[in-house]
Simulated scan of single mutants.
Amino acid sequence: MSRVAINELTGIRTRHPEAVAEAAASRRRRTRLIGPSGRLMIIAADHPARGALAVGASPLAMANRFDLLERLCLALSRPGVDGVLATADILDDLLLLGALHDKVVMGSMNRGGLAGAVFELDDRFTGHRPQDLARLGFDAGKLLLRIDYQDPASLDTLHSAARVVDEMAAHRLPVFVEPFICHRTDGRLHTDLSAGAITRSIAIASGLAGTSAYTWLKVPVPDDPEAMASVMETSTLPAVILGGDIGTDQDGVYAKWHRALRLPTVQGLVVGRSLLYPADGDVAAAVDTAVGLL
């Protein structure tokens, strides 16, 4: 999409807000979550709604919405990219730009745990509700499940997450659960990426709600990538590997993803910042490399 087309979005929103619902209703939908490749390649862009705008050394890299939309449209146009994970504001823009035809559209559901806030673990569902995803004809939802054994707010998140999994199953919509064990050090929240912590988080997430029929897992590669095989034996639920901010060792991270993708429960990748904002600035090449791993 050209910058001129993107610049028209505010005018459309101002004069004809119904255009979002109209674009959702006319969107060409895929018949299945998994496409012809047998794998799933999703571009993630739900970070801004939590105030998480940094990429690498740039604290506001994702703040420019026009730039982000151009990068997303380019990534979605590449062969082998199945769809996008984002919050309502970004998905509404992409609908208006016509960028979501034949794509998996995944709504991000709980973004209330703002990055760095004292209430970060009180991760309330401030984004898409299950009924919103069903009404708009979207294909799946995603929720973040961060658990700190020392923070009572984790129980509220755990309980609300379980009920959302129930609601998604009632709509027959897949829900991708992204679980982490966390802890605070000097007031800052840190994610435990040890194999043991990821194993526990997968076990907890797999047991949420009254059914797991529509539940997927979204998991990281542990600090010790050799432990990934045993970690993924914790559940039979289908899983995708998340990306995160990969820093400068891009080749090393790609190698970890490649090894993880050989495991029987791993069905694909959900990656955002590292593909949308690669160190060399070449979005198309970064996306094509990730697709090649599948």
Rank of each mutant, 00 (worst) to 15 (best):
I90P: 06
V177R: 03
M168N: 01
A205C: 10
G196C: 08
A203E: 14
L143E: 07
V105H: 03
D122T: 04
V104M: 04
L208D: 01
G141L: 02
V164C: 11
E120T: 00
L96S: 03
T199M: 09
T87Q: 13
S194M: 07
L95A: 13
M168L: 12
A213N: 09
R184C: 02
F180P: 05
A197H: 06
F125G: 06
L173M: 13
D89R: 12
F176E: 04
A140H: 09
K142S: 08
V84E: 02
S154N: 05
L136E: 10
Q131T: 11
A140L: 10
A205Q: 07
G207A: 11
L136R: 14
D82Q: 05
V105G: 04
G116Q: 03
L143W: 07
D156S: 14
L114F: 00
L133P: 07
L155Q: 14
A99V: 08
P174I: 02
T87K: 06
M106E: 04
G141W: 08
A197T: 08
V81N: 01
D151M: 03
G113T: 00
R135S: 15
G187R: 00
L208S: 07
P130T: 07
G207I: 02
D102A: 07
P152Y: 03
T157W: 00
L189G: 00
R135E: 15
V175L: 12
K142C: 04
G83N: 01
M106P: 06
G80T: 02
K103A: 06
D102N: 13
A115H: 14
D166Q: 02
G187N: 04
H171K: 13
L155G: 14
R163M: 11
R135I: 05
D89C: 04
R129E: 13
Q150P: 09
G137N: 04
A170C: 10
A99R: 11
T185F: 10
Y149W: 08
A88I: 13
V164R: 13
V175I: 15
L136Y: 11
T191G: 10
V177F: 08
L96Q: 05
R200G: 09
V164M: 15
D102P: 04
A86P: 01
I204W: 09
G83M: 05
H183T: 14
Q150H: 15
A140P: 06
L144K: 14
T211L: 00
I90R: 01
F138Y: 15
I90C: 13
V84M: 05
A169W: 07
K142L: 10
S206T: 15
R172D: 15
D166E: 10
D102H: 12
I147T: 11
L91C: 05
V177E: 06
V118W: 03
T185W: 01
V175C: 12
T191K: 12
I147M: 14
D151G: 00
L91N: 09
G116K: 01
I204C: 09
K103V: 06
T157D: 04
R200Y: 12
G98D: 03
V164Y: 15
L96D: 07
D89L: 12
D156P: 02
S194C: 05
G116I: 00
L173N: 06
L96Y: 05
A117D: 11
L155H: 13
H159V: 15
A117P: 03
P130G: 05
L155A: 15
H190N: 13
H159S: 12
D166Y: 00
S194Q: 08
L96R: 01
D186R: 12
L145T: 01
K142V: 09
L114S: 00
L114M: 11
